[in-house]
């Protein structure tokens, strides 16, 4: 997996994915919330091992984009696929598809009545049909990896936000997903806890995981992203390397956005 992590893939033009297979594919995706056109003709291809950071002002549709990929939000028109498999509308096919797509939420969403360990073990047991011991071994290894193994028997409410979010990442990874989606994973955290979560995400990125990250963490975008996608008003306005985006944004919307967040 690590060898397929090729930042250069960012520069491969659309269509030429013969070298690295496409993991996330969105074509002509549109969505309305009532009269509001929240996703306008979204086209996005993410190749295996790529880390794409989605930036943009609030209300630009970036969270919605993230949530359409595993159909937590439906779309009006367009085509979405993971690893060549089209997103099914419902039923068993949809649950199987979702099992391959890890998701981390802004508000963690750990199962409040279950211990940390049970949170990580549940889906591998019930969806992947792993035995209890196998699920436990996998869960403990992942909790070790995110540095929470010593809290395994606590309830989510007994952990700090940063710890909860690291557990949420472990819970998603326990399904061995092909792709990880992060929907503003650090937005609900106290500032001093942001780093511990970003560190886990960075190591995941280095390990070759295909990631789509909606965030406001510009430092993470610079360091860990292969590509930056800039959205405003439901459209993708820029899709380029972090270096290019931060030093030489092409659109006035992006320049405006950057001037507001980087000036202080």
């Amino acid at each position: 997996m690590a060898s397929s992590h090729t930042p250069a893939a960012a520069l491969i033009p659309d269509g030429d994915t013969s070298i690295v297979p496409t993991m996330i594919s969105m074509r002509g995706v549109n969505k309305h919330f009532g009269p509001l056109h929240v996703l306008r003709d979204i086209n996005l291809e993410v190749t295996r091992g790529q880390v794409v950071v989605v930036l943009g002002p609030s209300g630009s549709g970036k969270s919605t984009l993230c949530r359409t990929i595993n159909r937590l939000e439906t779309t009006d028109t367009g085509f979405i696929a993971i690893d060549g498999q089209a997103l099914p509308a419902e039923g068993k096919a949809l649950t199987r598809y979702r099992a391959d797509v890890g998701m981390v939420f802004q508000s963690f969403n750990l199962f409040a009545h279950k211990t940390i360990l049970e949170n990580v073990m549940l889906a591998p047991q019930k969806v992947r049909r792993l035995s209890k011991t196998a699920a436990r071994d996998r869960a403990m290894a992942l909790l070790e990896r995110v540095g929470i193994a010593n809290q395994a028997d606590k309830l989510p409410a007994q952990l700090s936000g940063g710890q909860q979010q690291r557990v949420a990442i472990a819970r998603a990874l326990a399904m061995e997903p092909k792709v990880m989606l992060f929907d503003e994973p650090t937005s609900a955290l106290d500032p001093e806890m942001v780093t511990e979560v970003l560190e886990v995400m960075s190591s995941l990125a280095k390990g070759g995981m295909t990631m789509l990250v909606v965030t406001h963490e510009m430092g993470f975008a610079r360091r860990a992203a292969d590509r930056v996608v800039f959205m405003a008003d439901g459209q993708i306005l820029e899709d380029t390397t972090p270096n290019e985006f931060f030093s030489n944004p092409a659109t006035s919307r992006a320049r405006d956005f950057l001037s507001k967040i980087l000036s202080h």
Binding site: M103, L110, A123, V127
Partner: peptide, 27 residues
């Protein structure tokens, strides 16, 4: 039960009945 709980269940590939049985109804 916050909507995020069943969204998390769905995002992990649990079906509607599983989400209800293991996550929503116990809470």
């Amino acid at each position: 039960v916050p909507i995020g709980q069943s969204e998390a269940a769905r995002s992990l590939g649990l079906g509607f009945t599983q989400g209800l049985r293991y996550i929503v109804l116990p809470q």
